[in-house]
Structures are given as C-alpha cells and as structure tokens.
C-alpha cells in the first residue's frame, strides 16, 4: 500500500509519520503511536469513544483520515495531564464517580473539554448537547453531566484566582 507522509502536532509534540494512505487517525494513534487511551468502539462514527480534539473541535478519529491531519493540532486524553497534575475534568470525573468501565471516558472528557474551551459557563443543556454523540452504557450519563458542570465551576474559580 502507498505510504504517505503526515505531520501534525500531537499533545504539543511534533509528529512525523509515514502511514498507509487511507488509514484513519484512530489507526495511527493506536497502531503506530501506541496511544491506546483513544478507544476503538464502532469504527463507524456512532459511539464517540474515539473522540479527539482537532484544532479545538471534537472529532471522531475513526472517520478522520490521518493524511487530512497534516498541519493540525491534535489533543488526545494523554495530552490533558500536565506535570502529573490531572485536568480539572479528569479530577471531576474521578471525584464524581463519572466512570465505571471507563471505555467511554476518554472520548467523553475530550468532548467536554472542547465545550469548556469554547464556553466557560455551560448550561446543563450545553453539556448534554456536547456529549450527545458519546455513548455510555454504565453511568446513566447523570454523573458525567454533573462532573462536567463541576469541572467548569472549578475552572472558573481557578481563573478568578489567577486573574
């Protein structure tokens, strides 16, 4: 199969890879870069488990061709932890018991992060809208919605403190 060169920024690091043309970003993240936290669920864009952030937008990596990612900024769940400190969303998910089996968690958190980066004071409906493309079988969604709202509040408080 033809190999194509892709160059993108992944979690603030430059990545240069030769990948099979037509391979998805999901396949490259998991198969080539060994970043298994991006989950492979349905491979057809209906479960949201593979959600990553591309240039600020939540995107389904199973439907995104790797070669279309050249020049883009990609964030996976591995990119959220800074110097060992959890992102407020990760902390809120943990404290709010918003994960059970954990399979949907990386996608959920990235979909939520993309929302909070755009909207610091989301309503409950904003949160529901942001995670509506992500399927969860265990939690009943309620703890996830509560965790995202709690993280937003925490992030606003931190911003106030540093201002």
């Amino acid at each position: 199969m033809t190999k194509v060169a892709v160059q993108f920024t992944l979690n603030d690091e430059e990545q240069n890879e030769f990948v099979d043309s037509g391979s998805t970003l999901l396949a490259v993240l998991r198969g080539k870069l060994g970043l298994y936290s991006t989950k492979a669920g349905c491979h057809q864009g209906s479960c949201g488990a593979c959600t990553v952030i591309i240039d600020g937008e939540p995107r389904l990596s199973c439907l995104t061709l790797a070669q279309r990612c050249t020049g883009r900024m990609i964030t996976t769940i591995e990119g959220l932890t800074r110097d060992g400190a959890l992102h407020p969303l990760q902390q809120a998910f943990m404290e709010g018991f918003a994960a059970q089996c954990g399979f949907c968690t990386p996608g959920m958190i990235l979909a939520a992060k993309s929302l909070l980066d755009r909207n610091q004071s989301p309503s409950r409906d904003d949160v529901i809208d942001a995670i509506s493309g992500n399927i969860c079988r265990c939690t009943g969604y309620e703890p996830i919605i509560a965790a995202v709202l709690a993280a937003a509040e925490q992030m606003r408080a931190e911003m106030k403190k540093s201002a």
Binding site: C42, Q44, S46, C47, V127, I128, D129, I131, S132, I135, G140, Y141, E142, I144, I145
Partner: peptide, 17 residues
C-alpha cells in the same frame, strides 16, 4: 446491526433521578 439502529436513551432523555 449497529448503534444507529439499536436505540438507547441519550443524555438528553434523562429523567430526574
């Protein structure tokens, strides 16, 4: 055969618990 056809309630369909 997939999540598009196998219906489940989403976060917008939640009742008050």
């Amino acid at each position: 055969v997939d999540f598009n056809q196998y219906l489940m309630p989403g976060p917008g369909d939640l009742p008050e618990f």
